[in-house]
């Protein structure tokens, strides 16, 4: 199994001295070439799980394994795309994409050639010499995705990469992600709170509970491939969205009630 998350738990100490359990015994598997989304309400520990899988945070219990090898610390096999704007503003698009190759010690000519391939893949050819502040938010996120893909990771791990974009751009970028996924056959785990995005892109969607985060249910998305955003108009698509919302509604309501209690 390319990615196996087994029994991961994490508890944080709150500022008032109490402890908050963010994750409780989370287990999940992603098969070779599969696109899996992890969906949950705000505060369910999605980003904590993202950091634990990516090796930026240590879980209290449980393991993360790639191809059967349990991993510790930062993972060469897992490429992360972050929710926040994460391009280096002092580097051009090409230099941003070449960054992991530079760390790997590749020569300038080789890393530029490889970086150009991934710039083309995300549809940014012609923008290689632009700086991030000369690009739109969607183009900056595509640069970040190209940079992670240039790392050629076994697993692509994305944490709400389009969260800051408007709905239409997000749907269109979903098409781009599907095209890249088809081309690279990249095993992908997407963390999101957006149901439409999860259904549009995924083979399976894992629903998380509100705090502590657990896997509540895994839904197989049996929609035809290759897909495009046009599938959003189909009745089947609507059925999956409705099904997932039924699961999420209860969790999101718990989250909202908790937030209101805390701020009261």
């Amino acid at each position: 199994m390319p990615l196996r998350v087994a029994g991961v738990s994490k508890t944080f100490a709150a500022s008032d001295g109490a402890s908050v359990q963010a994750l409780d015994d989370v287990s999940l598997e992603v098969r070779d070439g599969e696109f899996v989304s992890l969906i949950g309400p705000s505060g369910c520990g999605k980003s904590t799980l993202f950091q634990i899988i990516g090796g930026l945070l240590q879980g209290d219990r449980g393991t993360v394994a790639v191809d059967g090898n349990a991993l510790n610390g930062s993972r060469r096999d897992i490429g992360m795309v972050f929710q926040e704007e994460s391009t280096f503003p002092w580097r051009t698009v090409l230099d941003n994409v070449a960054f992991p190759l530079e760390l790997a010690g590749l020569g300038k000519a080789e890393r530029e050639e490889r970086a150009r391939r991934f710039v083309r893949l995300v549809g940014l050819d012609g923008f290689e010499r632009k700086f991030p502040d000369e690009l739109s938010g969607g183009m900056r996120q595509r640069t970040a995705i190209a940079r992670t893909l240039a790392f050629e990771p076994r697993i692509l791990l994305m944490d709400e990469p389009f969260a800051s974009l408007d709905e239409q751009t997000r749907i269109l970028l979903g098409d781009k992600i599907l095209q890249i996924w088809r081309e690279l056959k990249q095993t992908t785990l997407l963390i999101t709170h957006n149901i439409t995005e999860a259904v549009q892109l995924s083979d399976r969607v894992a629903v998380m509970t509100y705090r502590p985060g657990r896997i509540k249910r895994i839904v197989e998305i049996d929609l035809p491939r290759p897909r495009s955003s046009e599938i959003i108009a189909s009745a089947e698509f609507g059925r999956y969205v409705g099904l997932l919302w039924q699961d999420l509604r209860e969790e999101a309501s718990r989250g909202m009630a908790d937030a209101e209690r805390t701020t009261a």
Partner: peptide
Amino acid sequence: VLVNVARSFG
């Protein structure tokens, strides 16, 4: 996040 990006690449 920029530090985390670099860290994620080892």
